[in-house]
């Protein structure tokens, strides 16, 4: 089971490479239970859009 640190690392990597099916499933299970990581996951694409709009 992923902890928050591992989950956010994986979320960050998902911005740079496609995740494997097992990684996606592990993330899904973690974010179902963790509101903070769910918010983090939604904010990563926003940070990317901010940088692109810079």
């Amino acid at each position: 089971m992923l902890n928050c640190r591992q989950a956010t690392q994986l979320m960050s990597e998902s911005q740079d490479r496609p995740l494997a099916a097992g990684e996606k499933l592990a993330l899904k299970l973690h974010t179902l239970m963790c509101k903070g990581c769910r918010n983090f996951e939604q904010q990563l694409p926003v940070i990317r859009r901010i940088a692109r709009r810079y």
Partner: peptide
């Protein structure tokens, strides 16, 4: 490896 309570991302 869990968020510190005060550091947890908000919406």
């Amino acid at each position: 490896g869990r968020w510190h309570r005060e550091e947890m991302p908000v919406r």
